[in-house]
Amino acid sequence: MNCNALLAARQLGKTVTAGDESLTILHDIDFSLPAGESLAIVGASGSGKSTLLALLAGIDTPSQGDVLLDGVSLSSLNEDGRAALRGRLAGFVFQSFQLLPDFSALENVLVPLELHGTPAAEARARHWLERVGLGQRLGHTPRQLSGGEQQRVALARAFATEPRLVFADEPTGSLDTATGERIADLMFELNAATGTTLVLVTHDPKLAARCSMQLQIQGGRQGALHVQSMPDGWPA
C-alpha cells in the first residue's frame, strides 16, 4: 500500500439482501489514488459505479473491506466520525445537483462553509460563485436557474470549502451535451487550479478520458485500471 495515497480501497465489497436473497453488487475493489490525481470510475448502468462512489465517500458502509481516506480507516469511524472527515476533506457534485430548493445560490454555497464555521464565509461564497460565472445570480433560487446554472452552483459549493478531494457522481448526466461539456471544462479547470483530487463517476468515455486514471467496473468487479499519467514512482 502506498502511504502517499489520499484515497485507497482495500478488498472493498458490498452485499445487499432483499428478503431471503442476498446480492453482492461489488466485489474486491482494491486501488489507491494519490493526491492531486483524477480518477474516473466507468462502467455500464447498474455496474455498481455509484455504490462504489458512496463507499469511497463514506456515505455508505461496505460489507467487506475498508476505505482509507487520508490514511484514516472509514470502518473505524461511526457515522458522525465519517461525516466530520467528509466535512474536512471532501466536496460533492451530484447528477441531480442536490441544491436546497428554497435557498438562493449564495445561501446554497454558504451551507457547508457555515456548517464548519469557516471565517468570512459569505465573501468566500461570493468569490466562488463569481468564479463559476454566477456573480449576477447570487439571489436566485434553483427554480430560477437552468440545469447548467444549478450545476455551476453545485461546483461552487463543492470547491468553496477548499477540499482536498471532490466526489462527482455523473455531473453532466442531467445536462445536454453542450452544457455538459461546459460544466466538465469548468470542473477540470477548477480541479487543476486548486490541485484537488477528483473522483468522478461517469459512463461518458470522453469525460473519463480527461481523468489521469480510469477504473473500469463490470458487473460489480474491478476491471482494468488505466493510468494515463502517474507521478514518478507510483505503482499502477
Binding site: 456515505i59 457515522e79 461525516a83 466530520a84 467528509r86 466535512g87 474536512r88 442536490q98 436546497l100 451551507v111
Partner: peptide, 15 residues
C-alpha cells in the same frame, strides 16, 4: 433530502 445533503456535506447528527 436536505438532511441527507447536510450529512453528506459533513454535518453530524447532533448538528
Amino acid at each position: 433530502d436536505s438532511v441527507a445533503l447536510l450529512r453528506t456535506l459533513g454535518a453530524s447528527q447532533q448538528q
